[in-house]
């Protein structure tokens, strides 16, 4: 049933949709909480705003077992190589959410000490603004990422389909 490259055919599209569905419904985040945003990330995982309903309460400490890296907090110059190494240790497919103003753009700290936006170090799929973003904002960001994956727009963090 395989058609041409841009029309893969009925069977493969359904398979792709199924694979995307499984990927989004059980995405395991790697613990990369750095600063204040980490506290709000923990709040999103706690009972009041439960991240487990999206299949994501299992924060894996080892990046090798994680799909999603939520960069929560300000990334300093000393931490940037560590961030890159953790990202490299994750297996494909992997996604990155940049949580908070400091991770997205350097936030209010436009100075020598911070990397002005974590997208200078790793490719980012979803940016969640806020200082810190409340749990609802983070959940909105996660759901946006899920929608993007489901629609086939991104299959892994490099954004290449």
């Amino acid at each position: 049933m395989a058609g041409e490259a841009d029309h893969p055919g009925f069977l493969l599209t359904t398979l792709e949709k199924g694979v995307n569905w499984t990927r989004t419904r059980s995405m395991w985040p790697a613990t990369f909480g750095l600063a204040c945003c980490a506290i709000e990330m923990m709040a999103t995982g706690a009972a009041h705003n439960d991240m487990a309903r999206f299949g994501m309460e299992v924060f894996r400490a080892s990046p090798r077992q994680a799909d999603l890296m939520i960069v929560a907090g300000r990334v300093s110059q000393k931490m940037a190589p560590v961030l890159r190494q953790i990202y490299d240790q994750m297996a494909e497919p992997k996604w990155v959410i940049s949580m908070g103003a400091c991770a997205s753009t350097g936030g209010m700290f436009n100075n020598y000490a911070l990397v002005q936006g974590v997208d200078e170090v790793v490719p980012v799929d979803v940016y969640v603004p806020g200082c810190p973003p409340g749990p609802q904002s983070l959940l909105h960001g996660i759901l946006t990422l899920q929608d993007k994956i489901m629609s086939g727009e991104i299959q892994n963090s490099t954004g290449v389909v």
Partner: peptide
């Protein structure tokens, strides 16, 4: 030093009213 944000230096560039945010 992995979370060093240069807040003491930033504090010198913000006014006393803005200093609370930093």
């Amino acid at each position: 030093g992995y979370l060093h944000t240069g807040m003491e230096k930033t504090g010198e560039t913000l006014t006393f009213m803005q200093g609370g945010t930093n």
